Amino acid sequence: MSRTGHTYTAHFDLNPRQHELLGVDLGEGLVRRALILAISLLVSWNGALLLLLGLPTVPTLTLYITPPLVATFYGSQRSTKNDRRYNFTVWALSLRYLTVGHRPVINGGRRAAHRTEWLGRRARWGARAEWLADTPLGLLAERWLGPESEIPTGSGTPLRLNARARLYGPDAVGRAYGRKALPKEENRT
Rank of each mutant, 00 (worst) to 15 (best):
T9I: 06
L53R: 07
A165I: 12
R103H: 12
P183Q: 01
G174R: 09
R124T: 12
A172S: 14
Y8A: 07
V173S: 04
R122V: 14
G108I: 01
V105W: 13
R85F: 08
F12N: 08
E148N: 10
L37V: 03
T99E: 13
P16H: 07
E150C: 06
W91N: 03
P59T: 03
R33V: 09
A176M: 12
P152L: 02
L167S: 12
L167H: 14
N82C: 06
G169L: 05
H6M: 10
T80M: 02
T72I: 04
P104Y: 04
V24K: 09
D25W: 07
L37C: 01
N46I: 10
G174N: 09
D25T: 08
T99Q: 14
V90I: 15
R160Y: 04
Y168W: 14
G108N: 12
L53H: 04
W131A: 15
N162I: 10
L41H: 04
N107Y: 11
R32A: 07
G108A: 07
K180W: 07
L30H: 06
L159W: 05
I39S: 09
P56Y: 05
T116R: 14
I151N: 08
L132W: 08
G5W: 11
P136T: 02
S76Y: 04
R17H: 02
R17N: 00
E185M: 12
Y8N: 14
I151S: 03
Y64E: 02
Y8W: 10
L145C: 04
E186C: 07
